[in-house]
Amino acid sequence: MEKSYIIKQISIFSENRPGRLAAIAGALRDAKINIFAFSIAEANGFGVVRALVDRPEDAHRTLTDLGFRVSFTEVIGIKMRDEPGGLSDIASILGDTGINIEYAYAYSGKGGAILIVRVDQVEGAVRQILDRGGELLKASLFR
């Protein structure tokens, strides 16, 4: 049950220099892969590009073939009310139930606002959010 909400995010190692994001994005464009959301985490000299895409397996293969270091990471996408307090509701559920957020990023679009999180206990997080009336993105959106 919980598994159907666990999304495969692709994570790509990238050097921190001009043109690297363009190379990744260009590769996904050429493979006709759509990006729902992404973020860049940076450290000294390198970064990790994390993205939710419509075809994670294809994206993984495409980028790997081009020589990128790519991995899958399990994340969940939590729907938020797109108004004051929306993030607070979700963060409180996770905090109150002792689930730690390792990293998070968000987007807000036509379909509402989504918080994407990597947590330390992914199945526990799914259960707690559903139990408390929260809504999650279905993994089936990302074939």
Partner: peptide, 13 residues
């Protein structure tokens, strides 16, 4: 970074 060791957590890297 080797394929096996690549993690998307900056702290691991």
């Amino acid at each position: 970074v080797s394929e096996e060791a690549f993690s998307d957590k900056i702290t691991d890297l």
